[in-house]
Simulated scan of single mutants.
Amino acid sequence: MKHRETREVIVCGVLGTIRRPDVIIAGLHNTDGDLVVIGRTVPLKPAQSARLGAPLTPAGPEHPWPDEISSYRWGGKDAKTPLTEVEPFVVAEVTADAATQAGQVRYGMRYVRLRPDPQPEDVPFA
């Protein structure tokens, strides 16, 4: 039996366009203050994509993540896909399996909603 929990994540990148993202690449700050990838969502529904895209802002050159990310959950075949980096200002609520591996959520998270009330610095560390 899988146990899913609700958590808040920082939207730090997306697959697809910034206005119509297909997938969220989620991050959290670690105890050193670095923004690290903790997982990705399953594909977004069209209505979710439209709502999420509205508040996203393209990242500046100081964004710490690469321009490409593995197209597979856990790597493999060295296939890369472009990562659209966004400013880490948006917090989203997701549901995720409690299982993690090397600090990352093992299975695709499900986007629930935007969380305008907490700030990224309020989201618990990875």
Rank of each mutant, 00 (worst) to 15 (best):
M1S: 15
H3R: 09
T6V: 09
R7I: 12
R7G: 01
R7E: 12
V9Q: 10
I10M: 12
G13Y: 04
G13N: 03
V14A: 07
V14F: 07
L15Q: 12
L15D: 08
G16E: 06
G16K: 02
I18K: 04
I18G: 02
R19M: 11
P21C: 01
D22F: 11
V23W: 04
V23R: 02
I24C: 07
I24E: 00
I25D: 03
I25P: 00
I25H: 09
A26F: 03
G27C: 09
L28K: 11
H29A: 04
T31A: 15
D32R: 11
D32Y: 12
D32C: 00
L35I: 02
V36C: 05
V36A: 07
V37D: 12
I38V: 15
I38G: 03
G39N: 06
G39E: 01
G39S: 07
R40S: 00
T41C: 06
P43R: 12
L44F: 02
K45I: 07
K45M: 15
P46C: 10
A47G: 04
A47E: 10
S49W: 13
S49K: 08
S49R: 09
A50T: 14
A50Q: 14
A50L: 15
R51E: 15
R51C: 06
R51A: 14
L52C: 13
L52G: 10
L52T: 09
G53K: 09
G53A: 05
A54P: 01
A54L: 15
P55E: 11
P55R: 02
L56N: 04
L56P: 03
L56D: 06
A59S: 05
A59G: 03
A59W: 02
P61H: 11
E62T: 15
W65M: 12
P66V: 10
D67M: 12
E68H: 13
I69N: 02
S70L: 07
S71E: 12
S71T: 03
Y72D: 12
Y72H: 08
R73E: 08
R73I: 04
R73V: 04
G75A: 09
K77C: 09
D78H: 13
A79N: 13
A79V: 08
A79H: 07
A79F: 12
K80H: 13
L83T: 00
T84V: 07
E85N: 11
V86C: 05
V86R: 01
E87M: 05
F89N: 05
V90M: 11
V90T: 03
V91M: 00
V91A: 01
T95P: 01
A96Q: 02
A98M: 03
A99E: 13
A99Y: 10
T100E: 13
T100M: 06
T100I: 02
G103H: 02
G103T: 02
Q104C: 05
V105C: 08
V105D: 05
R106E: 10
R106V: 06
Y107T: 06
G108S: 05
G108M: 01
G108P: 07
M109I: 04
M109R: 07
Y111I: 00
V112P: 00
R113F: 08
L114N: 07
R115L: 12
R115N: 10
P116W: 14
D117K: 12
P118Y: 01
Q119H: 09
Q119T: 09
P120A: 06
E121R: 14
E121Y: 08
D122E: 14
